[in-house]
Design a protein around this nucleic acid. Structure first.
Lengths: 413, 413
DNA sequence: AGCACTTCGTTCAGGACGTGAAATACAGGA
DNA sequence: TCCTGTATTTCACGTCCTGAACGAAGTGCT
């Protein structure tokens, strides 16, 4: 429906993309298998793969015997053809990591953030320093860095050159994309942290092999990353997936967003602890930071604690059921530090609560799982942004700008 | 990300599709404008359009002066090149309509359904009779019918050859697709009625020109059709959009689906009337059928009625806000007979309630409108199914099956 | 009417691509 | 060494888009 032409170049790019994606995701493969699974002719596979080998993007990786005939040569993405840098802008620190093309971490840098509402300029400086630091640390040529992915906690408007709105950081319309691009030539990609973690989980975690999924992150706040047909669902202005502030108890508890009855006020760690404190009036409540207090609550044996947990499971189930009904995913992946902590002990109960609130058929077509990657995977998730672009473009380098005018033959013969 | 090759043929099909779609949607256009807006070269536009004219799919429609030069010839889709039939399987009747390619209705047939849970075989018979009846009535060659779109009220699994699950009809896994295909050679398309109405609204109603929208249908039941980037969002098994059974009042009223606190129990006409009866205990309640009772309630001046309406608006606003937060649409379109009735009098209040429950930013990026097409547009919506396929394929006829082996030239020169 | 000018639409040679068939490369066994 | 079975590569072909040249269809001026 997109009013865009298709040229012969798009075709080649699309075919390179298909081949490269398959090689990258499904390990070393022979040309034969590639032809089989992509429906491309062997001639084209050879041609395209040959081109990518010449460019150094793909390399041969041994061969495997083939029943008395010529052995088939296996192909893989050359890990060292390029590098990816991912960064996680958290509330307390900026973390930067460098990966090769197999997503193996090679270097890491971290910068603490002091202020509660950090200055965007300072964060940008940390990010750029981190980018330089990890490349140097790993001994990688800066020109070999294919992209710099940055995950932040707010919403990121893609259309408007990565303008960031982050309530928790106190950022409103920060042009982080422009700020970073001014400091480096490496292509910059910025996205929401939940979305990048969701992407990582889809490629390497509990979402492998699934095309429709919802990755749900429960921490102090609550968010979701919806993956539809293999790509993240963004909506018109990239803020889709604000699950935490959907109303689940009309007229209920006040949420920090100002509304009443948001899901986050019931299943977010802060909301859970607050509910416990109220239920436990007068008696001592778990202290320390939020995460340890939440853990303590989970381990506490008191009747009050059990009630609060049970209720939390119920609310969470209803919230997940809403997602199941609305998105009809193949899989629901529960993550975030609080989500994992809760899920490790109560997954069956969560499943049951979800089943109770969802329509029978959509629930029967889905499965509720826990995240496999820890919350540290946010930086890796950020690094998937440039990787995704590489795969989508079939590894075709974006042209610098205006290509030089092609040499004209003299007219006539 | 789809592991599918692209060939030079796909390229041509894609380009035809782009041109045809543009011509169909944006009325008569000159070759020049087509080249402009699709980025195709004029040579290719001429070539592709010429092909489509030869096939009779496109025709010239007058010309327009062009500032002293050769006048530009306008092009349009030939209305009579083919016909589309759409059907709406409602709870009380099967309605079948025939349209030309400009979506002008040319003939109509209707068959009442007596039983509450109609026999699928009987419905299929009605549909096939209707198909024959409207073609004959309009004097159209049956071979010129490009497709038969059928809208039903349940969920339709596309992958499994249009197997229908419809709770309201008492159908469980009815292979309606296979049943219809056995009775006609016309290509059959089946989908959920809310989705087809949503599609119609996107093309001809309140969703024109918008790429991300949610069309919400409130009647006795409550449903939604999510349109993402111009295409309906289906989820893994086509049951996405079950908005009516999302929990909005945890532990609240019992819904007919068995759960507690579903949105449908609060804003569906049945739920609203029931709430009114309870609030109005002892005094006379509106009688007659549901639709007139609902209308009466809306017009009633009593304090109780006003309260129930106000509450309904509040619940509806919260439900819409959930959609805004989750899907981040450019537009929310409110329809369905009860939704329209409510919206005609209370749209500002609904907007306000939505604003109150949604996050500020996503709400600011969307607009809440009323459906422009009546509920009778379901059959037309069904007819958009084959139309959408025609546009997607650029009007390329699907090959009957195995194409005849091309004549081989003798080898050598 | 004749002619210059402007704007459209079409034709043509050229280059990029995927494809099937034929040719070639590689390995184990006779 | 020759043969057989597979895996790749080479090559001639057909399809498709494109820029440039060419032809068509009006307008306005002389």
């Amino acid at each position: 429906m997109d009013a865009r032409r298709t040229t012969v170049r798009d075709m080649r790019r699309a075919n390179r993309s298909v081949l490269l994606t398959r090689i990258w995701l499904d390990g070393p493969l022979s040309r034969h298998e590639l032809g089989q699974s992509t429906a491309l002719s062997l001639a084209s596979v050879s041609n395209l793969v040959g081109e990518m080998i010449t460019e150094g993007l793909v390399e041969e990786a041994g061969s495997v015997e083939s029943d008395g005939g010529r052995p088939r040569v296996l192909l893989r993405v050359a890990p060292g053809h390029g590098y990816l840098v991912g960064a996680d802008v958290g509330e307390t620190r900026v973390q930067v990591e460098l990966f090769d093309l197999t997503m193996t971490a090679l270097a890491k840098a971290e910068y603490p953030i002091a202020a509660a509402e950090p200055d965007p300029g300072q964060v940008a400086t940390h990010l750029l320093h981190g980018l330089a630091a990890v490349t140097e640390q790993a001994g990688v040529d800066p020109a070999a860095v294919l992209g710099f992915g940055v995950a932040v906690s707010g919403t990121v408007e893609r259309a408007a050159d990565a303008v960031v709105h982050a309530q928790t950081l106190g950022w409103d319309a920060v042009p982080l994309g422009a700020m970073l691009r001014a400091g480096t030539d490496v292509p910059v990609h910025i996205d929401n942290g939940a979305k990048t973690l969701g992407q990582a989980e889809m490629w390497f975690g509990a979402g492998r092999g699934v095309r429709h999924a919802v990755v749900v992150l429960v921490g102090s706040g609550v968010g979701a990353c919806v993956v539809a047909d293999g790509v993240g669902y963004r909506g018109a202005h990239s803020s889709a997936g604000e699950w935490g502030h959907t109303t689940i108890v009309y007229g209920g508890r006040r949420c920090r967003c100002g509304n009443l009855g948001c899901l986050e006020a019931y299943v977010g760690a802060e909301g859970v602890l607050d509910r416990f404190r109220r239920a436990n009036r007068g008696r001592p409540a778990p202290g320390g930071d939020e995460e340890s207090a939440f853990g303590e609550l989970l381990r506490a044996g008191s009747r009050t604690a059990a009630t609060v947990i049970d209720e939390t499971v119920g609310y969470l189930g209803a919230g997940l059921a809403n997602l199941v009904n609305l998105f009809n995913p193949e899989r629901v992946v529960l993550g975030g530090w609080a989500g994992l902590a809760l899920g490790e002990r109560h997954l069956p109960a969560i499943r049951e609560a979800t089943a109770r609130h969802a329509l029978r058929q959509p629930y029967a077509q889905t499965s509720v799982e826990l995240c496999r990657l820890g919350p540290d995977a946010v930086a890796m998730g950020a690094a998937t942004l440039p990787m995704a672009r590489l795969l989508r473009d079939g590894g075709v380098r974006r042209e610098p700008a205006a290509r030089p005018a092609p040499a004209r033959r003299s007219p006539g013969r």
